[in-house]
Nucleic acid binder design. Structure first.
Lengths: 199, 199
DNA sequence: TAGCGTTAGGTGGTCAGACCAGCTTGATTT
DNA sequence: AAATCAAGCTGGTCTGACCACCTAACGCTA
C-alpha cells in the first residue's frame, strides 16, 4: 500500500463529485473540509487540486473557494506544449493527426449536417471566416462530441506552434456548397488541396 | 503581483531544464534544492511538480529523485477522457471515434507498412490473435505515434466498458493479405463489415 | 427604514519544520 | 573479495502557523 495519497484523493474527489451530482460551475468542498473528510493532510489535498487546476478541470478563487470548470478553458496547452513538443517527429505527427481528424470531421459533417447547420454556416460566411471557426463548425455538425474535443486540443497545440491558419474565403464557400450538395468527393478534393499546400 | 508561486516555479523549472540541457530520462534537481534555488517553500515546489507528474511530464521515484519522462507517456488525453466520459452521449461517441481512428490507422498502415511490419504480423498470426493486439500493430505500422497514443487511450476506455472484442481468425488473415497487397478497398470493406456487426 | 461601513469567519496561498520510507553509497566487517 | 551495515540523500506526508482575500452578517448612521 505505497500508492500516493494525492492519487487516492483524486479518486475520492471524483466520487464525491459524482455522488453530490456536481457539474461545471459548482463549488467543491474546501481544502480543509476535504482534508478532514478524507483523513489526509491539507498539503496532500492541495497537491491533488493543483493537478486538476493545471489541467483546467477546476478553478480556484482565493478567498472564495474551488469550482468545477467548463471544459475548453485548458490554458495548460501552452505549458504542455512548452514541455513536450520539442521533438521533431511529435510535431509532424501533430499536424498529420490534426488533418486526419479534420478529414473525418468533414466526412461526418457531410452525412449528418442538418439544414440548421447549413444556415448557420451561411451566416458565418457573410463575414471573413477563419480556419478554426470553420472546422469548429464542421466538428459540431459531425455530431461526435468526443472527436470534437480531441480536435480542439490538437488544434490548440497546433495554433500555439504555428499560429492561425488563413485560407481564401472561396475555400469556405466551396466547402459550404459541397456540404450542401453532400458531395463527398468534392469535399475531399478541396481538403486534400489545402493539406498539400500546407505541408 | 499575485500570481501563484507554483506557476512561477514551472516557468523557472522550464528555464533550468533548458539551460542545463536536460532531456528525457535526465534527473532534475531535488525538491529541496529547487526550493532553495528558487527561494520558495518546498510545498510550493511540490505542487508544481505534482502538476507535471500528473501530466506525465516527469516521474518521481521515492528515494531516488525526479526524472524527465519520454514524450508519449503524457496522459493528457486519458485524463481528459476520464472526466469527459461522464456524459452519456460521450459513451456513444467513444465507440464511433474508436472505429474512425481504427479506419484511419488501417489507411495509414496500408500505405506505410514495411516488409518488416508484414513479417511481424505474419508471426502474430501463427497463434490466436485478439483485436487489441492486431490494431496495436496497425497503428504501429501507421507510423503516427500521436494517433497511436490516442487510439490506445480510446481502446482502454472501450474495453473497460465493453470488455474485449473477439473476431474470427480469418478476419485477421484476410486483413493481412489485403495489407500485403495494399488493397485499400478490400481493407475498408472488411472493416466496414466488422463495424456493422458490432453496432 | 434604507443604506452604508465594519468586522468576524471562511477560503485559498505559502512557508517552515518535522518525521517516515526508500534508495545509494561507501566504510566496515567477515 | 564479498557481504553487511549505517549515514545521508530523496521523495511522501502531516501539522500548524501566517497572510491575502472574499463574503456575509452585524450594527451604525442618516
Amino acid at each position: 500500500m505505497t500508492s500516493k495519497v494525492y492519487m487516492e484523493i483524486l479518486q475520492q474527489l471524483y466520487r464525491i463529485i459524482e455522488e453530490d451530482g456536481l457539474s461545471a460551475g459548482d463549488k467543491i468542498p474546501s481544502e480543509r473540509e476535504l482534508s478532514e473528510r478524507l483523513k489526509a493532510g491539507r498539503s496532500s489535498v492541495r497537491e491533488a487540486l493543483r493537478s486538476l487546476e493545471f489541467l483546467g478541470i477546476i478553478e480556484t478563487r482565493r478567498g472564495e473557494g474551488t469550482y468545477l470548470k467548463e471544459f475548453g478553458e485548458h490554458q495548460l496547452i501552452g505549458l504542455l506544449g512548452m514541455f513536450i513538443l520539442q521533438e521533431k517527429k511529435a510535431k509532424e505527427d501533430l499536424a498529420e493527426t490534426k488533418w486526419l481528424i479534420e478529414e473525418i470531421g468533414l466526412t461526418l459533417a457531410c452525412e449528418r449536417r442538418t439544414e440548421v447547420h447549413l444556415r448557420e454556416l451561411q451566416m458565418l460566411l457573410k463575414q471573413p471566416l477563419d480556419y478554426e471557426t470553420f472546422f469548429h463548425w464542421v466538428l459540431k455538425a459531425g455530431n461526435n462530441y468526443l472527436l470534437e474535443r480531441i480536435w480542439r486540443v490538437l488544434n490548440d497545440f497546433y495554433q500555439w506552434q504555428h499560429g492561425t491558419i488563413s485560407l481564401p474565403h472561396s475555400f469556405y464557400e466551396q466547402m459550404h456548397q459541397s456540404l450542401e450538395e453532400s458531395d463527398l468527393e468534392k469535399i475531399r478534393a478541396l481538403f486534400a488541396e489545402h493539406v498539400k499546400h500546407s505541408r
